[in-house]
Nucleic acid binder design. Structure first.
Length: 731
DNA sequence: AGCATTCCTG
DNA sequence: CAGGAATGCT
């Protein structure tokens, strides 16, 4: 929204206003200029608002969602079938498939809502499945539901598909909401009987297209619509007829099927072996009774569903479909058992087995090809043709069952039906594979853990391609410790602090610079990543020159190449201990002059870069300090504090804890009392200013800064010693 | 122009 | 904490 933008711009502009107190930081003198003082709005409090963003939506997988996931799979599996080639001799299942298609078309209203023939198209499959997710979820449960189709069917469906697509595109492009009764989503308009409200964006698009559409085209479009409606009605009648026909055939097939399996079951039972088939003889009987359904119930069974039942019977996994459907004692049951049917049924069973097997193989091939990135040899690696019963026996006994299920999780929202577990020889990701994303950034060893300096193993190979890294990667472990020191340009130093190694001329060596055990290594990280990875590789012929080369790189980056021969490894950069020292100094001085810094960091070879960095440090310190002050002042106001006198800064207070955590994280330095006083003054200044409403002034902090900058106290002399950290922290 | 400082961002 | 932008002083 424009208002938002303007507001943001305004905020930014006001924030951009400096709060420059104009402290001139020349030697020892502190002068305060007021003329140009400006202040800015503080936005520190905004950080509280981020909690609202932590509104994580927890995805809970309910059963219904699981079934949805299952249907997603099935949708995909159905679409995969479109890529399958026609199986030679696929007579029965082909017929089932064809009938299935027509039946779906007749049953699902969604199929007709475009007024176009979309049989066999992926869109239709999507519609059917998505619709069935609301109504009868079982319709799309099996990827084997339509495992094959004849070439004629494919051609016809493809043609219809193309026609449907073309017509639909025409509809969308030409006719979008020309008539109030014709929305661009015709199906919705027809179902709801009212045009869908359009978003402004959509209406904009429509207007654009409206202008380009002549009046005549609108009329012709309406004619087209009505014509297609008629076509649709006719098609619906035709489909109903087809459906009835198909249902008859289906019933016959079911009867034959059950008769066959009844006979084979009895045969198997005779030899005493409880084969998988025999185990389901009871279930068979149940299904036989189910074959006596009413027409309406039969319409809920598509051929794919029928095949699912067959699989379920064989593998003792009822495919969950029947349980949800109320069983009726059909009064029109017709169970014919004749010997001629028996022979015919056996042939039917064999054909069914082969069909199932072939379909399974094809589906699996397709699915695996789609899912597994690494292609595996087509039709290789599969066991010899098995009977469906052999193939489906597996699940509840298969030792690989659980791993297979786990493996399925690798497919995300796609779940492969259990029969596919038998593809244990297919190379798909399993539970032993890497399923979680590895962190791209290896967590650095904290220097809070003494002696755990980064080891070569912790380096991501892609992040540190420098020859140094690779060199060190082959160093013996005992050599690892000085590694970061070399990178940083630190001398290889004995723990006693005496300079050693190839730096005889180092008179500025300070032991504290070696005290890396506690400090964080941000600087080291930066240096190692910038100056080693991004710059010229070290010449392999000069393996011992890492340090000096690094130093030179660092120095040249600072634009100060003077006195290269006299470079101390310290002078090139500020160490983490320097930072620590600066933080401790902040307890005494908030506005140190550059000269003061030079005095207190005498072990540093100053140049513009170093000076700026040190000044920047203190600027950052102040920033944090004032942010905390304002935050706590506002918090006190919100808590009902009325007088600044109530505000105190004590060592057990939250404010002190925050400050101490920032400047004295290790808590190994005794914060001077004076700092508490200054902090309390600062806090009260903020409090009073806010209470007085001065914070409406963009430069309201200038007065506070002016006050605080005068409260600097003398930094103890011990800070001038390069060894001050040891002396301070170990007494 | 150079520098210091604040503010913002990552 | 550093980099960069903006700003203002000298």
């Amino acid at each position: 929204m424009p208002d938002h933008d303007n507001a943001a711009l305004l905020i930014r502009q006001t924030k951009r206003r400096r709060v420059d107190i104009g402290v001139k930081r020349t030697v020892g003198t502190v002068s305060v200029g007021f003329a140009h003082l400006k202040a800015s709005n503080f936005s520190a409090m905004n950080s509280h608002g981020t909690e609202q963003d932590v509104n994580c939506s927890v995805v809970q997988h309910t059963d219904s969602e699981k079934s949805n996931v299952l249907q997603k799979l099935l949708k995909r599996a159905n679409s995969y079938e479109d890529t399958l080639v026609t199986f030679p001799g696929a007579t029965i299942i082909s017929q089932l498939l064809k009938n299935n298609l027509t039946k779906n078309g007749a049953n699902e209203l969604g199929f007709q809502r475009n007024g176009l023939s979309r049989r066999g198209s992926e869109i239709h499959q999507e519609d059917a499945c998505s619709t069935s997710s609301r109504g009868s979820p079982q319709e799309c449960l099996s990827p084997f539901g339509r495992p094959t189709m004849s070439q004629f069917d494919i051609d016809r469906l493809t043609d219809e598909h193309l026609r449907a697509k073309r017509a639909r595109v025409e509809n969308i492009i030409r006719g979008m909401s020309h008539s109030p009764n014709v929305s661009h989503r015709i199906g919705e308009a027809e179902r709801d009987g009212a045009p869908q409200p359009l978003s402004p964006r959509e209406s904009y698009r429509e207007n654009k297209r409206k202008q380009k559409l002549p009046q005549q085209q609108q009329q012709s479009f309406q004619q087209l619509i009505s014509a297609r409606k008629e076509q649709k009605h006719e098609e619906r009648r035709h489909l109903k007829l087809q459906l009835e026909d198909m249902q008859k055939q289906l019933r016959q097939l079911q009867e034959k099927f059950y008769q066959i399996y009844d006979s084979t079951d009895s045969e198997n039972d005779e030899d005493g072996n409880l084969s998988e088939d025999s185990l389901h003889s009871d279930g068979m009987d149940n299904r036989v009774s189910e074959s006596n359904r009413s027409e309406n119930e039969m319409s809920d069974l598509d051929p794919g569903h029928f095949l699912d039942q067959a699989q379920a019977l064989i593998c003792e996994q009822t495919m969950m479909t029947e349980g949800e459907k109320p069983k009726r004692d059909g009064s029109r049951g017709k169970v014919h058992k004749s010997m001629s049917m028996h022979a015919e049924g056996k042939q039917l069973a064999e054909t069914l087995k082969q069909e199932l097997n072939t379909a399974m193989t094809q589906v699996v091939d397709t699915v695996v090809k789609v899912f597994a990135k690494t292609p595996y040899p087509h039709s290789q690696g599969f066991p010899a043709v098995q009977t469906p019963s052999e193939r489906f026996v597996v699940n509840h006994e298969n030792p690989d069952f659980h791993t297979s299920n786990q493996r399925l999780q690798c497919f995300g929202d796609v779940i492969i039906p259990n029969p596919l577990n038998s593809f244990s020889n297919v190379r798909v990701p399993n539970s032993n594979d890497q399923t979680e994303a590895l962190p791209l950034v290896v967590r650095k060893n904290s220097s809070d853990q003494p002696g755990t300096l980064p080891t070569p193993a912790s380096h991501h190979p892609g992040l540190h391609p420098s020859p140094l890294t690779s060199t060190m990667a082959f160093s013996p472990p005992s050599f690892r410790h000085p590694f970061p020191l070399h990178i940083m340009g630190y001398p290889f130093q004995s723990p006693l602090g005496a300079p050693s190694g190839p730096y005889p001329g180092n008179d500025r060596v300070s032991p504290e610079s070696m005290d890396l055990s506690r400090e964080t290594t941000s600087l080291r990280t930066k240096m190692s990543s910038n100056h080693l990875s991004l710059h010229r590789p070290i010449s392999p012929t000069h393996p011992g020159n890492h340090e000096s080369l690094s130093i030179s790189l660092i120095k040249s980056e600072c634009g100060d190449i003077q006195d290269m021969a006299d470079i101390s490894p310290y002078s090139g950069s500020l160490s983490p201990n320097h930072l620590k020292k600066a933080k401790l100094m902040f307890f005494y001085t908030r506005y140190p002059s550059s000269n003061m810094l030079k005095m207190f960091f005498s072990d540093v070879k100053f140049n513009r870069c170093i000076t700026s960095q040190l000044i920047k440090w203190f600027s950052n310190f102040r920033e944090f300090y004032y942010i905390q002050m304002e935050k706590f002042a506002r918090q006190a106001i919100n808590d009902g504090v009325t007088g600044a006198e109530e505000l105190t800064v004590s060592r057990d207070g939250e404010l002190y804890r925050a400050l101490n955590m920032h400047y004295n994280k290790a808590n190994d330095f005794e914060v001077p009392e004076r700092f508490l006083e200054v902090a309390q003054i600062t806090l009260r200044e903020f409090f009073n200013a806010i209470v007085a409403g001065k914070d409406v002034d963009p430069s309201w902090k200038k007065a506070i800064y002016k006050v605080i900058c005068k409260l600097d106290s003398e930094v103890p002399e011990i800070f001038k010693s390069p060894n001050c950290l040891q002396e301070l922290l170990h007494e």
